[in-house]
Structure formats: structure tokens, C-alpha cells
């Protein structure tokens, strides 16, 4: 029981993070049909901002987290306005290439500012494991926090999308861009909100991971690709799919290393991604869109 339970617990913890980041990918894709490649770097930025506030400036960790989320929200907003907005309507690939550029730029920036030294939030207390009774698996306090915070944020997003005016506007624009703008929704405003919310969620993920692991300027790369995979697996454009996909990817890769050498852990997500892209590109919850040939 022990090992299996432990792998499942690890999978759930990682999955919560992937889900948080996947939400940003899926919300942006749902509206703009565009893979925001720089999203993983926003996650990294969130971790570093949290570290700056908490360790450098000595702010309380919760306040630091909120400040980092705000900082990333601003960053997401600005990135969209400067780099993506001028490219709308210019096809699929120019914004994708620009996003890759932004992603590399932010990584390099982080290396220049924070250097290659290891930065960490870690304190002795939070990482000490607690054995969960009955299933014989170990979980740390911070990991419990990860699960609680990520689930809480997802629930909050659910209510936001479902009941607020902006949330409804988001769904409308995602469903039909043209019609939504005809009925008086300003798509540009909605797009900004999507970047703001998605970036704040990614920042939260970054801080949570940062509290458990070391911070590195490239920490956003693999999380980024795995979360994107999660979004595809769940059916890109669908926020509930992204959550499901996040937990699935977390579980698949953690259980997967039981069967294949751990060096291939990162490749598992890519293999899953390729599989879904080729054989089930609509994901689990995805609806076929734009497939009908118009006559």
C-alpha cells in the first residue's frame, strides 16, 4: 500500500499545481485560439516575486503571496497589451513565435536579476513530513497547503466564471467571439481579464511550488508544458477539463515512474501530449469546433 499511496498523493499534489497553471492556458486558448507559451514564465515570475516580498522584504508569507499574484496579474496584462495585441488577426503562428520570444526573454531576465544561485523559501518546519494514518504515505504541511489553496482557487474561479458579469462575458466571448461583440461585450476587456486572472493563478502555483522546491529561472518550462498538456487532455478551452487534466497528468507521471526510468519523467507528459494531439485532439471534455465544412 505504502508506495502506491505515496505516488498517488504525490500525483495529486503535482496535479493541483498543473491544474492551476493549465487554467491560464485553457482560458486564453478558449478565447484567442492561441497557446500562450509565456505562461510558464509567469508562473516562475510569481515564485520569484513571492520570494522577493517574503525573504528580501520580510513581508508575511500570505501577504507576499497576494502581492506576487497582483504583480503577475499586472505582468500578464502588460504582456498581452505589448506583445500579443498587435498581432491579433495575423494568423496563428506569429503570436505563437512572439510568445516563445517572451518566454525566453523572461527566463533570461530572471537569470540576469536573480543569478544562478539557488533561492528558497524553505524553512525546516514546513517540510517535515507527517505520516497519514491507514495508508502509510507521507505528506508535508506545505503540501497540505498546496492542495487546500489550489482547490480553493479553482472553486473561487468556478463561482467567478459562473456568477459574475465578467465571468459570464468570458464564457460568451469564448463561445462566439463575433456574436459576443455584437451584443455589446467588449472582447478586449474580457481578454485583459483572462490574462489577469490566468496570470494570478499561475503566480499562486509558482509560490506554492517555490515554498516546497528551489527556485530556478527555468522552473516554468517543464511546468508550462505539462500544464499545457493538462489543458489539452481535458479539452482545451474548457476550465473544468483543465482541472481534470491537471490531476490526470500529475497522477500519470508520478505513477509512470514506477514503470519506466525516472529520467524519462518529463518525457511522459510529452508522450501524453503527442498521444492526445494525434488521436484525441479535442481532449476529454472538448467539443468539436469549426470542424464542419461550411457549404
Amino acid at each position: 500500500m505504502g508506495i502506491a499511496a505515496q505516488l498517488i498523493i504525490n500525483g495529486i499534489i503535482a496535479g493541483g499545481i498543473y491544474a492551476l497553471v493549465a487554467l491560464g492556458y485553457t482560458m486564453v486558448y478558449g478565447i484567442l485560439r492561441f497557446i500562450n507559451f509565456a505562461h510558464g514564465e509567469v508562473f516562475m515570475l510569481g515564485a520569484y516575486l513571492g520570494w522577493v516580498f517574503n525573504i528580501l522584504l520580510g513581508v508575511n508569507v500570505i501577504v507576499a503571496g497576494v502581492l506576487a499574484m497582483l504583480g503577475c496579474a499586472v505582468a500578464g496584462f502588460v504582456i498581452d497589451k505589448i506583445a500579443y495585441k498587435p498581432l491579433r488577426g495575423r494568423g496563428m503562428l506569429p503570436p505563437l513565435i512572439t510568445a516563445i520570444g517572451i518566454s525566453l526573454f523572461l527566463q533570461a531576465l530572471a537569470i540576469l536579476i536573480f543569478g544562478a544561485q539557488i533561492r528558497t523559501f524553505r524553512t525546516g518546519e514546513v517540510v517535515r513530513g507527517i505520516t497519514i494514518p491507514f495508508i502509510d504515505a507521507i505528506i508535508t504541511k506545505i503540501q497540505i497547503v498546496i492542495i487546500i489553496v489550489s482547490v480553493a482557487l479553482m472553486v473561487a474561479l468556478h463561482f467567478y466564471i459562473k456568477y459574475t458579469k465578467t465571468g459570464k462575458a468570458m464564457r460568451a466571448v469564448a463561445d462566439n467571439y463575433e456574436v459576443a461583440s455584437i451584443v455589446g461585450i467588449n472582447p478586449n476587456k474580457v481578454i485583459s481579464y483572462v490574462f489577469i486572472i490566468g496570470s494570478a493563478l499561475a503566480a499562486a502555483g509558482g509560490i506554492l511550488v517555490g515554498m516546497e522546491q528551489n527556485l530556478t529561472p527555468t522552473m516554468g518550462v517543464s511546468i508550462g508544458i505539462k500544464s499545457f498538456t493538462a489543458a489539452v487532455v481535458g479539452g482545451i478551452g474548457n476550465i473544468y477539463g483543465a482541472v481534470l487534466g491537471g490531476f490526470m497528468i500529475g497522477l500519470i507521471e508520478n505513477i509512470g515512474i514506477w514503470f519506466i526510468p525516472s529520467g524519462y519523467k518529463d518525457a511522459i507528459a510529452f508522450a501524453v501530449l503527442l498521444f492526445f494531439l494525434l488521436f484525441k485532439p479535442t481532449g476529454i471534455f472538448g467539443v468539436k469546433k469549426g470542424e464542419e465544412v461550411s457549404v
Partner: peptide, 12 residues
């Protein structure tokens, strides 16, 4: 890092 930054900025 500076090299990467130049390439990235150029690309954008």
C-alpha cells in the same frame, strides 16, 4: 543569458 535576451527581443 544576455545572448538569449537579444535573440528573444529580436524575435518579438
Amino acid at each position: 543569458a544576455l545572448r538569449v535576451m537579444i535573440y528573444a527581443a529580436l524575435l518579438i
